[in-house]
Design a binder for these strands. Structure first.
Ligand SMILES: [Mn+2]
Ligand SMILES: [Mn+2]
Length: 553
DNA sequence: GGGCATTCCG
DNA sequence: TTCACACGTTCCG
DNA sequence: GAACGTGTGTCTCGGAATGCCCGG
């Protein structure tokens, strides 16, 4: 039986209104004003009122600025045909205190707004022409210390458009600061379609005022870390100083704070600051924080404490990663402390070595071809196959209207998907789904129905382009339901831990069998999360293989 | 002038 | 705003 | 072998414009 697919909407046929972005911006503002007014400061509430009273031109100009990067703009670069009277709009915005002309004389503020040619010309220094951007900036800065800023620069009107109010609205609307107004456009153009869950009045991303400021700070720290700066002790001090100390049980807040603390502590390790790192890790709920903490204790010459923490971790360890860490690290510590270690069986798996001649393509594709020569067909899918099946099977649970799970219209997964309570909150729905499978015959139609009705809807686990209708048919035909069920149940038990680590290939031979195959190049080895899956396959009689490629040179 | 990254836009 | 994976180097017992 | 750092392809799309660098 074939799986048919709804045709996607024709992207070309969609034409947006000239003021599409203003409509979207207004939707965002009113959504927040309706749901979160109890969190807004006086200033933020006034912002909404003030904005609403502006002329359409002024609203458009301000929104256009918010859509751009940064808070400083050259007036001559703000050109929009749909704005009738830019100068009048600007006057309005300045009167409303939403925009001001830049007063700062600081070079660093305006220098990025000019390109090299403009700077060379404005300073009338043709000898600077061949400098690289970085060098040129140094000369400009030095020159401005002793001279007036050239008229050619001053002649440009530079606008300062503070975005802190908008950032608050954006944070409350999305529940994060990574999404922005382009979400609306992508949806309107039909490039992205979201599941139509309902968002109740009580389903809020943030519930305390203090969390707003804390989350903003965490986002700034996250951007700092992501920019990979040169970590000097001073910079690190400043960063750590900024970590919010707010006591809140909000999982959103704790998760993001834990991530920042972990990243900064890890950076302290690289700087050799093990003592400080060891102070930080216990404050983080990051899944690797306990391991790093113990490593730091060992570096700090506290093997007894490290041993104690390691035994504690061993008793509580649930993840394969923690267990294998305990296994290797206790040997190292035991030697030092003359302790004895329990005899544990470590993971082992046989590899099949094959010899191939070098090609231009990836080793995975080489093995796909090799398998095809043996008969049958192989797909390079990594995690996408079983994550997609997981989504298809448990879709109704994943997108169930649970309070707090969905708080903006552009989510690809519920907010609590990585929490242990995810399953408990959806217990009855998940049970109903499982009951469908009691007689073992309904699962195919359940999966097919979901595939057909939800096809192309955005879900962080569903990879529609990777698992096309043909592959889905093959899967349903060749993979026994009991295997599919075991694997997807495992993903359900901890989506965060088990959404990765699945092998490279899925292979279907000519005798109706399937097999999960990990390809390893000459210098590559199984990673921990890959071992965890193979361990699971071994214990559950799921067909699996590791193929080691050797190139004949 | 080509190659590449970033930004803006719909 | 990654994240998942592969690959190369260094270090140590 | 263990541990670490880094590179690469996914990136929520795809095109146009801009800016920078580098080699001819
Ligand atoms: Mn792989
Ligand atoms: Mn592989």
């Amino acid at each position: 039986m074939e799986v048919s697919i709804n045709l996607e909407t024709n992207v070309e046929s969609v034409v947006l209104q000239p003021d599409y972005y203003l409509s979207n911006f207004k939707i965002l503002l009113s959504f927040v004003a309706d749901r979160y007014s109890f969190l807004l400061s006086e200033k933020e509430s006034r912002f909404y009122k003030t904005f609403s009273c502006l002329s359409a031109d002024a609203q458009k100009l301000l929104t256009r600025c918010y859509m751009r990067k940064g808070q400083l703009f050259r007036l001559d670069k703000l050109n929009y045909t749909e704005i009738n009277d830019k100068d009048e709009a600007l006057k309005e915005l300045i009167n409303a205190n939403l925009v001001s002309e830049l007063e700062s004389q600081s070079v660093a503020d305006w220098i990025t707004l000019f390109n090299k040619a403009e700077l060379v010309k404005a300073f009338n220094k043709s000898e600077w022409k061949n400098f690289k951007r970085k060098e040129l900036e140094l000369f400009v800065i030095e020159f401005c210390e002793n001279h007036d800023i050239p008229q050619a620069i001053i002649d440009h009107t530079i606008l300062f458009v503070p975005s802190d109010n908008f950032e608050t609205y954006r944070l409350l609307f999305f529940g994060n600061l990574r999404q922005d107004l382009t979400e609306f456009v992508l949806q309107d153009l039909g490039l992205m379609t979201y599941e139509s869950y309902s968002i109740s009045d009580k389903s809020l991303a943030i519930k305390n005022r203090d969390e707003i400021d804390a989350l903003k700070t965490l986002h700034e720290l996250s951007e700092l870390i992501h920019s990979r700066p040169e970590w000097t002790p001073e910079l690190m001090d400043q960063a750590i100083e900024r970590i919010p100390q707010l006591q809140s049980q909000s999982t959103l807040y704790l998760r993001r704070r834990s991530k920042i603390i972990y990243a900064l502590a890890r950076e302290n390790e690289r700087m050799g600051e093990y003592a400080r790192a060891a102070e930080m890790y216990p404050q983080s709920q990051h899944e690797l924080a306990r391991e790093r903490y113990i490593r730091c204790l060992e570096k700090l010459n506290k093997p007894e404490l490290a041993w104690y923490e390691l035994q504690k971790l061993d008793a509580e360890a649930t993840s394969f990663h923690d267990k294998s860490f305990v296994l290797t690290f206790e040997k190292k510590l035991a030697k030092r402390l003359r302790e004895t270690v329990k005899n544990r069986t470590s993971f082992y798996i046989e590899e099949q070595a094959i010899q191939l001649s070098r090609s231009q393509r990836s080793v995975e594709l080489d093995v796909c071809d090799w398998l095809a020569q043996q008969g049958g067909v192989a797909y390079w899918t990594e995690n996408s196959v079983f994550n997609t099946l997981f989504a298809l099977i448990y879709w109704q649970g994943i997108f169930e209207d649970i309070e707090g799970a969905f708080y903006n219209p552009f989510q690809t997964q519920p907010a609590d998907i990585y929490e242990p309570l995810f399953i408990t909150r959806r217990e009855s729905t998940l049970l109903k789904i499982r009951q469908l499978f009691q007689d073992g015959s309904c699962f195919r139609s359940h999966i097919r129905d979901t595939y057909q009705s939800k096809y192309s809807l955005a879900c962080s686990f569903a990879h529609w382009q990777m698992v096309d209708a043909e592959l889905l048919d093959t899967l349903l035909e060749k993979v026994p339901f009991s295997d599919m069920d075991k694997i997807t149940q495992r993903i359900l038990s901890s989506p965060k831990e088990f959404r990765s680590g699945q092998p490279d290939l899925i292979y279907f031979d000519n005798n109706g069998n399937y097999e999960l195959i990990e390809v390893k190049g000459p210098g590559d080895r199984l990673q921990n999360n890959q071992k965890a899956w193979f361990d699971f396959y071994q214990k559950n009689n799921i067909p699996h293989r590791v193929i080691r490629v050797i190139y004949d040179d």
